[in-house]
């Protein structure tokens, strides 16, 4: 692979980045080639020691997506970041995907329970409408209590979701650092 092929290959992988940032990265590598050539190396030798543009692109993209989640944590951003970090290595597949699935299930379950508690008085009313004979005061009060509990749970879940997202982004970041050469845990 010569300099042009290397840079083109890297460029296609960095399409998602802003023009400015992509140019900056390509400039760094272009400089690397020029200095190497001035020292008498061939473009092929330099490209070979640099390693695969694919892997370099992956590393750059992963930290790009994680940065993006930090500024705005929309669902698509989070999924993109998770995916990008997983792409770094098999190690991350195990260590990122597992906790992510667990966390998402817990949050979804929490919301589902909260919501079903809140609607329980409505279910009670439907039950009365369908079977008027089945009216029991205990059921009424029980469903009202559940409704209150559900409301509390939902408010709680709001906080839990927000904190989990923040925590998980930190965890992602830690993983990127780990893979990309950080020792700061």
């Amino acid at each position: 692979m010569n300099k042009k092929e290397f840079l083109t290959s890297l460029e296609t992988r960095l399409k998602k980045l802003s023009n400015e940032e992509r140019e900056d990265i390509l400039q760094d590598f272009s400089e690397h080639f020029e200095v190497g050539k001035a020292e008498g190396k061939t473009e092929e030798e330099i490209a070979h020691s640099l390693g695969s543009p694919g892997q370099i692109g992956k590393e750059i993209l992963a930290s790009y997506y994680v940065d993006k989640v930090e500024t705005s944590s929309s669902t698509t951003n989070i999924f993109k970041a998770v995916w990008a970090v997983i792409g770094l290595s098999f190690f991350n597949l195990v260590i990122v995907l597992g906790p992510f699935i667990a966390l998402v299930s817990l949050i979804v379950a929490g919301w589902a329970i909260g919501a079903s508690f809140v609607v329980s008085p409505i279910l009670f009313l439907i039950n009365i409408a369908v079977f008027p004979d089945a009216f029991m005061l205990f059921d009424l009060f029980f469903s009202i209590t559940l409704c209150g509990l559900g409301l509390l749970l939902i408010v709680g879940m709001l906080y839990v979701s927000r904190i989990s997202i923040k925590g998980f982004v930190k965890y992602l970041n830690y993983n990127v650092n780990l893979v990309k050469g950080g020792m700061n845990s």
């Binding site: 990265i25 760094d28 590598f29 390693g51 695969s52 892997q55 370099i56 930290s63 990309k180």
Partner: peptide
């Protein structure tokens, strides 16, 4: 890379970070 065998390209993403 004179001392440790690394794939040299990964130094640049690290520098950016």
């Amino acid at each position: 890379s004179d001392r440790i065998a690394i794939s040299e390209g990964s130094v640049y993403p690290l520098l950016r970070r």
